[in-house]
Amino acid sequence: MATTTGHHSPAPGAAPYPRMILAQTALETRMLLRHGEQLLLTVIIPTLLLVLFSTVDLIDTGPGERVDFLTPGVLALAVLSTAFTGQAIATGYERRYGVLKRLGVSPLPRWALLLGKTGAVLVTLVLQTVLLVAVALALGWSPRGNPLAVVGLMLLGTAALSGLGLLMAGTLRAEATLAAANLLFVLLVLFGGVVVPLEEYPGALRTVLELLPVPALAEGLREVLREGGWPALRDVAVLAGWSAAGLGLAARFFRWE
């Protein structure tokens, strides 16, 4: 190795914030999409559920086309898979492997790291939504309602589920986060009002389920996309409440290593 003096002569300085945030978003997005397991959760399972339950009469989804019932639920599931499950698992392992610590001593401020993570979740979510909407339209879906209400609900759902995902990743061990995030994903596929209408469940259970973020998001989206109306105030309030609680607790208890 030849010695080249002057090579390392100091020229310190941070990159401009926009460049750092863009770079962080791009890297986080690649990390989120690179895992096979992750694609199973974000792409394959939601698509399969949509295709399977739309074309085969397995569950009574109430009056109207089955795809009109299923698509809003599957969109809610997409938010769950990326904002909660995917983000929690990835962040849990980043914490475990010292990635957060390493970035914590780089010029990237913590808020910019979180912006990068949020950016990655949103990019992934856009890709999922485009794919699922295309599949649903091919299956004969006829969406109604105000698109802005849909976007607003999905963003609120993203905030609620991101907060909970980060809370989990920042407080539990990586393995515990992995197990719990996957378990909750499966439970919410079954009980989250995604493929099975909440009306199918007994009253007490239903009351509890309606207070959870995924059922509230699914119901809210259904109210807009299937009925052409506006989401119920209660569903919006549930999502806002979880957002405040999740993000607030994550900000308070998140540990970087």
């Binding site: 020229a11 310190p12 300085g13 990159a15 460049r19 962080q24 890297l27 010029p107 990237l108």
Partner: peptide, 9 residues
């Protein structure tokens, strides 16, 4: 490359 992108020079 990512680390490099966080610095000015």
């Amino acid at each position: 490359r990512h680390m490099a992108s966080l610095y000015a020079h």
